[in-house]
Design a protein around this nucleic acid. Sequence first.
DNA 1: ACTATAGGTAGGAAATATCCTACCTATCAA
DNA 2: TTGATAGGTAGGATATTTCCTACCTATAGT
Lengths: 106, 106
Amino acid sequence: MAGDRVFAALASPVRREVLRLLCEEGPQPVQRIAGRFDMARPSLSEHLRVLREAGLVSERKVGRQRLYRLEAVPLHEVREWLNPFERFWREKLTGLRDLLDDLDES
Amino acid sequence: MAGDRVFAALASPVRREVLRLLCEEGPQPVQRIAGRFDMARPSLSEHLRVLREAGLVSERKVGRQRLYRLEAVPLHEVREWLNPFERFWREKLTGLRDLLDDLDES
DNA sequence: ACTATAGGTAGGAAATATCCTACCTATCAA
DNA sequence: TTGATAGGTAGGATATTTCCTACCTATAGT
């Protein structure tokens, strides 16, 4: 599945935070992003590469900076993967779940 | 964040497939689950442990079998993490995105 | 042309993930 | 009680991840 890379990219808290940052504050150069993390810049570059290869960000050269921009469309795939599970947590939250389990397992 | 384990658990295609299986076909013993994968059973046991520690499945002893059951509630957390991004892919899909980017970056 | 800045790449160390086989315990069935 | 089955745990090989420092290129400013 192509979405493997997307799920793998989301496994890192750092990468999720980068996405949240780009979502809330718009496109940013690497330095501004790196300033938020207690990590050497080349390490962040690695994370950005993972996000790029998952299609979750794109880069655009502006002078000697590179603006990284959120590309949210692949996240739609994650959302769709979750869909079949939604009724389960809904049932749980409404207290209906235990009843259905008894039916399933009998 | 507690959800770190959930996102990490979802990074493996095998584990996502296990969840889908439990979702579609209800609680199952380890053997039935293992039959779906080209993998030694102890390896699958490892994957089940990861899912258990993320709170995504629970086990119940029944005779000498252990029924694994989907616990979907932690997935709600993933869904909520996605919420802020939703408007971005919506805009993209409706063709509105490029317009907003021009505003952001100017 | 020279210097400083932005940021990618190389290479390596340490930690973690993913698979295996071998082995152990618990339960069922004869 | 003895044998077979379900499934977890141990330990190890290999691959991947995640971080680092050192280095390189490209652009901007003087």
